[in-house]
Amino acid sequence: MKRVTVLIMLLIVSIIQLNLSAEGVKENSPEPVAQTLTIQVAGLKGPTSIGMLPLFQNRPDFAAGVQAEYQVVPEPQIMLSRIMSGEVDIAAVPINLAAVLHNKGVPYRFGAVSGDGLLYIVTSRSDISSMEDLKGKTIYCIAQGSTPEFILRYTLVQNGIDPEADVNIDFTYDHVSITPQLVAGNVDLAVLPEPFVSIVAAKNPAVQPVIDLQKVWARTSGTRTTYPITAVLVKEELLRSNPEAVDAFFSVYADAIDWVIVHPKETGALAEEFMDMPAGIIASAVPRLNLHFQLPAEARPRVDELYRVLYSFAPASVGGRVPADEFYE
């Protein structure tokens, strides 16, 4: 009996020691490490991403548990490939491309507007200062069959000018080849976007923007505001799984755009560093880049109007139809 009692007591002591050891292990165990969400943010090289330059420099992690990686994408086809493959989570792209991708079923949603139009009529002539003055003239226009042509045609029509009968629209040059022609004086009237307006004016001060097509659109359009030109796409999966992170990103992006508007000289330096664009030219162009951050709830009326205008000229330019409600949700 004594032997049995001793064995029982030893067993009890062993159990108590095991429990104490287990509690000690539990108390000393490290806390589980929270997983970090990595978000890929991409901006297309050029005016589309000027508002992102402070983000490229500062690379902010905009929410707890979120690590952001920023990339400047050199060409539209590379950006398209990365979106189609789902490699990027947030991307700044031309606004018509956003509609095309949506209508192809690519799983991204419209997150925000980050820039308005930047098309201007430039000339070295002294007899042109209004849309009415364009009658009877040859207007050189870049990018036949795309947004610059459609914006020009729309604003002409809205001002009572027949694009077929009252003017001659010439598509001989693209945005690169027309620049030396304007500088040399071989072309004296053209539609041009920033920063090419500033590039030409710097090389030939006689060529200046005389008509702001954004103001013409605002004056004559149904919304009485100008048209947007840059959209921020957000991957559907990210919107559903972490909307707080998306909201936090948009907050820092809006602040970045505000900084760019106030600091054109510093923005020029960043454009040279991150996008190999001439600092002085970008600094001069910033006031005419019309950077503007706006969430879909406020932006949608003018986004829809732009899409309807583009669709009226070429349905394929927006992917065959004007995007419906789900694009913005």
Rank of each mutant, 00 (worst) to 15 (best):
G65Q: 04
V72H: 07
R109L: 11
V73I: 15
P76V: 04
A91W: 10
N96R: 11
Q67F: 07
P54H: 12
A98P: 05
A91L: 05
V100I: 15
N96H: 14
A98I: 06
P60G: 06
A92R: 10
D89N: 11
G86Y: 08
P94S: 00
E75F: 08
A92Q: 13
Q77L: 07
V113C: 00
V93Q: 03
D116R: 04
F62K: 02
V66T: 07
Q77H: 02
P107Y: 10
P60Y: 07
P107F: 10
M79S: 10
I95G: 02
N58T: 13
I90A: 02
Y70E: 12
A68D: 09
F110Q: 01
V100A: 03
K104I: 06
L80F: 09
G115R: 10
L101C: 05
V93A: 00
N103H: 07
K104V: 05
A98T: 08
G111L: 15
F62C: 04
G86S: 02
P74N: 08
A64C: 00
R59K: 15
L80I: 02
A63L: 09
Y108G: 02
G111M: 09
R59T: 15
M79V: 01
P94W: 00
A63F: 03
M84N: 07
P60V: 11
I90N: 00
L97H: 01
F110N: 02
V88A: 01
G65W: 06
G111H: 14
E75V: 13
S81V: 03
V66I: 15
P74F: 12
N58G: 06
Y108R: 03
V106C: 06
K104E: 14
I78V: 14
I95Y: 01
F110P: 01
A98H: 04
S81W: 11
P54S: 01
D89H: 12
D61Q: 08
A112P: 05
I90W: 10
V113W: 13
I83H: 01
Q57M: 14
L55W: 06
P94C: 00
G105N: 07
V66E: 10
L97N: 01
L101K: 05
F62W: 15
D89R: 02
Q67Y: 12
A68L: 08
D61L: 00
